[in-house]
């Protein structure tokens, strides 16, 4: 490689370095803000949460079976339970729909159809959750009531179904990506042995993409647990420690919304309680995400 341009010209162009230094500093500062956001979240949740836990012992918080702030009863189990029940219903809906779509799109659908269907599915993922909440109240629950007589307006089932719809494209999209990342040579190897498409899909492609698939499901669960508007509207605002999906129940997120809607004054125990349950929500979703990342990392090593 030969030098291009004369040195003096280059010196001139490099002359703007004071400005460059300032820009670099500014860019670095912007990157630091992203870390500050995380720090801010942790400090806020832990800080306000700590005040809460000086008044409500941790033991009571984690083992109490009643959440009734007006009477000072802060047992988080009903809220946590509701979040989990609805996330599980969502998973029951979304895992078959998402995996089925992923297998269909990756292994069966002609390329042209795939290019149409995939964005359509992603529309669901971008659907504002308030819309899904409206859909649950306005369409899903009434439809369920025709099948299940006596089903109340607020129930975990409808909430779980719409949250399931919301996370289906997450599962289908990520699973399909990891299935398509399976080298074609592996499929051909199986076809060349006389395997049918079903066997290739289920016995070769799915196992080869398993870590990616599992990670997608785990991530979807985390999304379901953090989901707010659909569950607030559809499952109601009455804390209820129950595994019955036909009953109404209040999730962690719905409780935060309920308190925020009113005027809980700053510094009151109720105000602090939303940070305490927020901290719990943050820790749970973070833990789930870390698990998902671990799984994905394991999957990356497979093809190296």
């Amino acid at each position: 490689m030969t030098p291009v341009g004369d040195p003096s010209g280059r010196r001139k162009r490099l002359g703007g370095s004071v400005g460059e230094r300032a820009m670099l500093l500014a860019l670095a500062a912007a990157a630091i803000i992203s870390i500050l956001v995380t720090v801010g979240i942790v400090v806020v949740l832990v800080g306000e949460g700590a005040t809460f836990f000086t008044e409500v012992p941790l033991k009571e918080f984690f083992t109490g079976t009643e959440w009734f702030p007006v009477e000072g009863k802060y047992g988080v189990l009903p809220l946590l339970n509701a979040s989990i029940v609805i996330a599980l219903i969502a998973a029951v809906v979304a895992v078959p729909l998402g995996l089925g779509s992923a297998i269909y799109l990756s292994e069966y659908a002609p390329e042209r159809l795939r290019r149409v269907v995939k964005p359509v599915l992603e529309v669901l993922a971008g659907m504002p959750t308030i819309v899904l909440g409206f859909f649950a109240l306005d369409a899903v629950t009434p439809a369920l009531q025709t099948v299940i007589p006596g089903l109340g307006l607020y129930n975990a089932l409808a909430a779980g179904i719409v949250v399931g719809l919301l996370i289906t494209p997450l599962i289908s999209s990520l699973s399909e990506d990891s299935m398509r990342a399976v080298p074609n040579a592996m499929r051909e190897g199986a076809f060349g042995l006389g395997a049918t498409r079903r066997v290739v899909s289920l016995k070769v492609v799915v196992p080869a993409a398993l870590s990616g698939i599992v990670a997608s499901i785990v991530l979807a669960l985390s999304r379901a647990i953090g989901e707010t508007m659909a569950v607030t509207l559809a499952a109601g605002t009455v804390p209820n420690l129950s595994w019955n999906p036909l009953e109404g129940m209040q999730t962690i997120t719905a409780y935060i919304v309920q308190v925020s809607k009113g005027e809980a004054s700053r510094g009151s125990l109720q105000y602090e309680s939303i940070f305490a349950v927020g901290l719990l929500l943050f820790v749970v979703t973070l833990a789930i995400n870390i698990i998902a990342v671990r799984i994905v990392r394991k999957y990356r090593t497979v093809y190296q």
């Binding site: 995380t38 979240i41 800080g47 991530l219 953090g226 929500l281 943050f282 979703t285 995400n289």
Partner: peptide
Amino acid sequence: NISNLAAVPSIIYGLLGLAI
């Protein structure tokens, strides 16, 4: 950190905004 932030439930950001 950034990819974890992207996965934090949006309601948590509400709590952050409320406090800060």
